[in-house]
Simulated assay, not measured.
Amino acid sequence: MIKQKLLAVSTFILFCTFVSQSAATSANKYAYEISRKDLLEEALLYQFAEYFNEITGGKAYGCQKILNIKRIEESSNRHEITAQLLTYEGAHNPPNDLYVIRFSVEPPGEGEAIEKAKFKIIKVDKTKNIPEEEILKICKKKTK
């Protein structure tokens, strides 16, 4: 029930983000446009926020992105995902630590509730105190 509410709220937020972004794009030809791929990535990453908060010890983070996603077995819904995120303190202040998290996720079993999806951490790489030049590269947005 909670997951369904979270999904509904995240869908609404994504819709509002898309609508507001479309309005900004219409008003300014140089505005950043969100592609369908970016929206899907954002929605997927949002589903793992609880785990990312646990991994980072509750630190604020941003610049999250999916580096790789693959199906574990050809005919299954099990996936291995590699994501990266950058932690910060306060108003995006250092120290900034880069996390590269590889995990697997599989759907709930037959008859299990949707919140029973299985999340398993495979590997976490943490690089401390990322320099500002590197942060700019990591967080760079693609523009059209």
Rank of each mutant, 00 (worst) to 15 (best):
N77V: 00
L39E: 00
A8R: 07
L45S: 08
Q64T: 13
K142V: 15
V124M: 10
E33L: 13
N96G: 01
Y51D: 09
T17K: 11
K123E: 15
G57P: 08
N96C: 10
G109A: 11
F119M: 01
S76Q: 09
I130Y: 01
E89M: 04
I2A: 14
A60C: 12
E110D: 13
R102G: 02
E110K: 15
E50I: 02
K59Q: 13
D125I: 10
F119C: 08
E42H: 00
I114W: 03
N129G: 01
T11V: 12
I66K: 09
F52T: 02
I121W: 02
Q21V: 13
E115H: 09
H92C: 03
K140P: 01
A43S: 10
T82I: 04
E106M: 06
N53I: 12
Y46P: 00
A49S: 11
C16D: 12
E33T: 14
C139P: 09
S104Q: 15
Y46D: 13
F15S: 09
K123A: 11
N28F: 02
E74C: 06
A31Q: 02
Y30E: 15
N96T: 04
S104W: 03
L136Y: 03
T11D: 14
A27N: 11
E80W: 06
P131C: 04
L44I: 09
G111C: 12
I101E: 06
L67H: 08
E112K: 05
A49N: 08
I121T: 14
L45T: 04
K37H: 06
Y61C: 06
S76G: 04
M1T: 08
P94E: 09
S75L: 12
K70M: 14
L98W: 08
I34T: 04
T127M: 11
G58F: 03
A49T: 08
S104M: 11
S10V: 02
H92T: 06
L40S: 02
G90Q: 05
E50S: 06
F12W: 12
Y30R: 13
T11A: 15
S75F: 14
A60L: 15
K3L: 15
K142R: 15
V19H: 11
E54Q: 12
K59Y: 13
H92Y: 14
T56L: 08
L40K: 05
V100E: 13
S20C: 14
I81M: 01
